[in-house]
Design a protein around this nucleic acid. Structure first.
Length: 418
RNA sequence: GGGGGAAUGUCCCGAGCGGCAAAGGGGGCGGACUGUAAAUCCGCUGGCUUAGCCUUCGUAGGUUCGAGUCCUACUUCCCCCA
């Protein structure tokens, strides 16, 4: 691809955000003039977004930062009632309207950390497609939008084909998702002059359909840009760990856990992630990714702190870094580790190790705890537990009135006597 | 509408003569080695009050001392015919 002239595309290219774009020159020109009003849509299927969404959030961030255009965050209040089949092989559970509304509220808060909202020209704006999708009239929609879609072509789209090939059910309601998403694009153009849609590479088909529908419905030329599918160096899809999804909301995943996630990335991912998920300047990143061997841990810490700072703020990032240092480098019990309250009376009466570990959220059943103990995975106050009959008492409390429970070397929880 | 095939361990794929808590992968978790990395090796990967008991093979019944396995009905998917 020839070199872009706009800051926006230059930054995105340089930092590795671009997988596919519909028309480099067209996008570049609009970005150059600062008229590239762009939207990204987010489902409201969970109470928080997770790391997988971060990529597109960062793209919106750079859009605003480079002055390329107005970022629009589209909440899928309407489309979530239908369910996007892209990248899934299971029928999505239909959420109640209340759930969707609650999820929407949860998701909202994250964007304020990455975007500047307001009424001025390039201030970010948040929209909800329930606003125009909910009142749609079926007959009119079929007539105005439906007629532009070819079932033949829809059948050949990856999201549909995958379901068909794997012999999984694809309900009619989900089959319609791409019509709605395409229509969103058109509607956003009409309302806010949106010119481009961004998303993950799995959204390419939906985006292209939107561009197409726009042409047929008279929006003029629309554009699309997708980011590469985020995988780790080992090929795993990013966003989930044993502890659950890597949520962005602090009440779902504490800053410490978030920091730990970035601290533990694969060596091979450090440079790429620094570019994608932090705002560190490129020459600093080049210096960090040149580190090798033991030294690359410096780069990982920088990544963890920079990424955590972006999402949770400077103070939270500093605290997480300190907690990690105390826990992993100094071997002392850091007061800020995740903690769970435990009635003092339980400890006085003697609390068996199994229920204690479960209470701490480190395991799901006694059986799992027992197996973990036989694997040498469980520690109390950094002392390996050998006997699954081990009972915790007040004698295990350290000065701070806590017992440190560990599952493996990395997952630590403090049991706080209250 | 007719005919044939399929559904397995609630992550995925996938074996399974009527004695099955159910082979084997992948993935995940833990241990060793390291650097809170990767690779490698080893262990674990239904629940419980664990010499035992309970719940699991699409759903509901049935046959049998005993059913993932056989029979019937239903649900969903695939293929062929119309």
């Amino acid at each position: 691809m020839s070199a872009p002239t706009s800051d926006f595309l230059r930054v995105l290219t340089e930092r590795g955000f671009i997988h596919q774009l519909s028309d480099l020159a067209g996008i570049d020109a609009l970005a150059h003039e600062g008229r590239l009003t762009t939207y990204v849509g987010y489902d409201c299927t969970a109470p928080s977004l997770h790391v997988g969404h971060l990529l597109s959030i960062m793209m919106l961030h750079w859009l605003q930062e480079t002055g390329a255009g107005k970022p629009i965050v589209l909440m899928g209040g309407g489309t979530t009632r239908v369910g996007d089949p892209s990248g899934r092989d299971e029928t999505r559970r239909i959420l109640s309207l209340d759930d969707i509304e609650a999820n929407k509220q949860g998701i909202r808060q994250v964007f304020a950390r990455f975007l500047r909202f307001g009424d001025a020209g390039r201030d970010a704006l948040m929209a909800d497609n329930a606003e125009w999708l909910a009142p749609l009239n079926y007959i009119e929609f079929l007539r105005d939008v439906g007629r532009h879609f070819s079932v033949n072509r829809m059948m050949s789209m990856d999201s549909v084909k995958l379901r068909l090939d794997r012999e999984h059910e694809l309900s009619f309601i989900e089959f319609n998702y791409m019509l709605l998403q395409s229509y969103d694009f058109v509607e956003l153009h009409r309302r806010y002059g949106v010119r481009m849609q961004m998303g993950g590479s799995d959204q390419w088909g939906n985006i292209v359909n939107g561009i197409d529908l726009g042409r047929r419905m008279g929006t003029g030329q629309l554009y699309g840009l997708t980011a590469p599918l985020m995988t780790t160096a080992s090929g795993a899809k990013m966003g989930k760990t044993a502890a659950g999804a890597l949520w962005l909301n602090a009440d779902q995943l504490a800053p410490y856990g978030y920091w730990q996630f970035w601290r533990n990335v694969d060596d091979a991912d450090v440079g790429r992630f620094l570019k994608l998920f932090t705002r560190l300047p490129m020459d600093e990143i080049r210096r960090l990714e040149a580190l090798s061997g033991q030294e690359i841990n410096e780069a990982k810490k920088a990544l963890a702190s920079a990424a955590t700072m972006l999402l949770h703020g400077e103070e939270a990032a500093r605290l997480a870094a300190r907690t990690a240092e105390q826990t992993f480098e100094q071997g002392v019990i850091a007061a800020d580790l995740p903690s769970v309250d435990c009635p003092r009376a339980d400890l006085e009466a003697g609390l068996a190790i199994g229920p204690a570990i479960i209470l701490a959220g480190l395991a799901a059943s006694n059986g799992e705890v027992r197996r973990a103990i036989s694997n040498g995975a469980i520690s109390v106050n950094d002392e390996r537990v050998a006997d699954d009959k081990r009972v915790l008492g007040t004698g295990d409390l350290s000065e701070g009135g806590v017992v440190k429970l560990s599952f493996g070397k990395k997952r630590h929880v403090l049991l706080r006597a209250v």
